[in-house]
């Protein structure tokens, strides 16, 4: 297992390298530049700014310089829009916010989604099943840009303690977490139900049943293990996506997380910031997928490669 994880981490580094390099060329292919203001910038000022930040060099030179700074100094460069602020500072400030929001949202999704999915599978084709699945599909159909303002206007404005938007007291986290977790809870419920149905019909559960194992035991011990496989594959990347923030939810609730930076940096062509954020996301994806694979190996010994 240790050897497997070391190998996977090695692969992870390769993933990060390829990802970061691809992103480098993609962001430079975007139209416009970071210094493009609302008013036209005189040529000589633009040239001065470009040379100051090394953007006047050839693309390959910039590429090597970028990697050199990361590898030798761990330096992700400065923000080109908020001059004087380092990319790493921006990420360090926003990441804790997104992390706690994402964790809470994920927790909500898992603690509601998995039991709901299991219950629906166990009571297949009953009214409970129909009701649960109806709710789940409705949850998926309501996009976050609708759910977020509705939550804010209804609960946020009227339930004492909750707030419409903002980030100035500890309870502010609840509504954004619900808005972020709802769709994921629905996904998890649907996938869990599907996975469980698949396993409940499979031979080894039949065998267990034939041997006279009680229904509770079947559900928990045998079926859950492999029934959760699709859910777990979904959860890995979903978790990474959740803790890097969502632009819509953050902008509807005024949460100072990574999601806002992601979109704003792209719109402003803040090259170094986009790359820093993608790097951060890449690290999370690699870790999340590794965790998923380890989890799956534990859930289903057959997957141990």
């Amino acid at each position: 297992m240790i050897r497997y994880m070391v190998r996977r981490l090695g692969q992870g580094l390769l993933v990060l390298f390829v990802l970061e390099s691809l992103t480098f060329f993609l962001v430079h292919a975007l139209p416009g530049n970071p210094f493009l203001g609302e008013r036209k910038l005189p040529e000589h000022v633009l040239a001065q700014l470009n040379s100051l930040y090394g953007l006047d060099a050839g693309i390959w030179e910039q590429f090597f310089r970028y990697w050199k700074a990361i590898l030798l100094h761990g330096d992700f460069g400065p923000s080109l829009v908020r001059e004087g602020v380092q990319v790493s500072e921006i990420i360090m400030q926003a990441f804790p916010v997104s992390l706690e929001l994402g964790c809470l949202a994920m927790l909500l999704a898992v603690v509601t989604g998995i039991p709901a999915g299991m219950l629906a599978a166990w009571r297949r084709n009953t009214r409970t099943d129909a009701l649960l699945m109806f709710t789940a599909v409705a949850g998926i159909c309501i996009p976050s840009f609708v759910l977020a303002p509705i939550l804010g206007i209804t609960l946020g404005a009227h339930v004492p303690g909750l707030s419409v938007a903002g980030w100035d007291n500890p309870l502010c986290i609840l509504l954004p977490a619900v808005a972020l977790g709802a769709a994921n809870a629905a996904y998890v419920a649907r996938l869990t139900r599907a996975g469980m149905l698949e396993t409940l019909a499979s031979d080894f559960v039949r065998t267990a049943r034939a041997k006279g194992a009680g229904s509770g035991r079947i559900l928990w011990v045998h079926a859950l293990r492999s029934g959760l496989l699709p859910t777990v594959s979904y959860l890995g990347p979903a978790f990474a996506a959740l803790i890097t923030g969502s632009f819509v939810v953050e902008s509807c609730f005024q949460v100072p997380g990574l999601g806002l930076h992601f979109v704003n940096a792209t719109m402003d062509r803040d090259y170094f910031l986009i790359q820093g954020l993608v790097f951060c996301y890449g690290v999370l994806i690699v870790i999340a997928n590794l965790a998923v694979d380890v989890c799956q190996a534990w859930l289903n010994p057959r997957l141990r490669a």
Binding site: P149, G152, I153, G156, A157, S163, V164, A165, G166, D168, S251, C252, F253, Q254
Partner: peptide, 12 residues
């Protein structure tokens, strides 16, 4: 702007 107006009415 929608968030901002809602924040105003929410006492923020």
């Amino acid at each position: 702007g929608y968030t901002e107006t809602r924040m105003y009415f929410g006492g923020k």
